[in-house]
Design a binder for these strands. Structure first.
Lengths: 239, 239
DNA sequence: TGGCCTTTTTAACAGCACTATTACAATGTG
DNA sequence: CACATTGTAATAGTGCTGTTAAAAAGGCCA
């Protein structure tokens, strides 16, 4: 997989650092240091970029605005937002503006690379399912499996078109993380890193507690989609 | 997960503290207090170490130089840089020299442990993906023989596309170990080392017991793939 | 030498005590 | 109210051992 990435990032040292890691992966990168430059660079030659990483706090034009304008030019471009604090508010705005995933700062270089790979994988899969998924209504769901639909922009989960009520942020993120790769087992540590963030050092068992609550709420609409894999972790499976 | 870590750190109190935390995780640690010693220790026996944590400010030979020399000996060894102040400059140089991740001082022991775990996980995942570069659809199987498919990411075993039910961790590991090299005989000692870990002192016959259970579960889907090699051990064969 | 029986070695099986892991409930905090 | 944590109960998995069954080896005799 060879990628060209547009990194929108005002902290030059971060950009340089990531540049080296991308190079290690065999990817190339352009950097825009403010919002205006980002939009300009992308507008000039949209097709050359495979993906955009987008800092939210930018000079001149903030990340949300950049995302909107970029999406106007090329709606299918994958965008990963880099949010300073993991503020729910910002995430929702970001998703609304067209972001596909977010990574909260500070992040480890490898974490970002992992997300990029995951996103690319997801997009390839989506492409294959394009026929089934397209248009009809204006409803956009980020994850669609046999029974479940998840909308990140609305923070909504539907099971057989029934709303799952009162999902909390952590529960939503947990479900979203696992549902992106159905049947794949996630260790508690993986979930901690993915949902709680790079620099969070909580207890494994905290995950259990949230899984329990999530299961309770899913059961209310008849969903039984989170399996325990003994000695390993959890997985999503609704087949 | 059992690790041996080479910690390169001139501040002895830091090293001691981390030593205790590593011990709690069941990991062992060697300490080098300056750059020269670090390179020497690593060069003497590179394979014993699973990971290096590397302070950047070192007597005699700085961390960057150590990283380069270590990478020259063994390019795949994971390195985590410990940067004294979060000086971006240093981080960048460190990565250039071959570091995989960084933690800025002062760091919490749990933070470093979390980073180590995350790094190990990624390395394992990357290794697997290299082995499994085939696989087109979302289905990824790490082992595929005539009748059996094994997916470590899903912890699933299929025999002629039938699920083997209720596989426990030990059983899965046993089967996975043997199925990787069909027809090769594994002694009980080899299996103990591979599945239980190299410093586990258990009875040979414990292996038998698990093989029995595994066979039972495999029989339920009509699989008869584990042969006894009298006086030697067991082997996987489904041809 | 080759067949047959006995002895010895090795593996299969079954059950139990123990451990590890997970689910659940309750609490404290912001 | 969401969350993190902790204690406890429930559950699943593991390790071991006594016993039984099977295989190999050795001895005996035709």
């Amino acid at each position: 997989m060879k990628l060209k990435i547009l990194m929108v990032e005002d902290d030059q040292s971060v950009a340089e650092m990531m540049g080296m890691f991308f190079e290690k992966e065999g990817w190339s990168m352009d950097v825009a240091t403010d919002g205006e430059q980002a939009v300009k660079m992308f507008a000039e030659n949209p097709d050359q970029y495979d993906l955009i990483t987008l800092d939210l706090n930018l000079p001149k034009k903030d990340g949300i605005e950049v995302a909107k304008e970029v999406c106007a030019i090329s709606p299918s471009i994958p965008i990963i937002m880099l949010t300073a604090r993991s503020s729910e508010e910002e995430q929702i705005q970001g998703f609304n503006a067209g972001a596909d995933d977010y990574v909260s700062k500070p992040f480890s270089p490898l974490a970002l690379i992992a997300r990029i790979k995951a996103l690319q994988r997801r997009i390839r899969i989506d492409d294959k399912q394009e026929q089934t998924k397209t248009a009809e209504s204006g409803e956009k769901f980020d994850v669609v499996t046999n029974h479940i639909k998840i909308s990140t922009s609305r923070r909504e989960v539907l099971y057989d078109n029934k709303h799952v009520q009162n999902i909390t942020p952590k529960e939503f993120d947990l479900l979203y993380t696992m549902a992106q790769k159905p049947k794949q087992v996630f260790s508690r540590e993986q979930l901690l890193e993915s949902v709680w963030g790079y620099n969070y050092y909580g207890e494994d068992r905290t995950v259990d507690a949230h899984i329990k609550k999530l299961r309770q709420k899913l059961e209310k609409v008849g969903a039984n989609v989170i399996q325990t894999v003994w000695g390993v972790g959890y997985k999503f499976d609704d087949s």
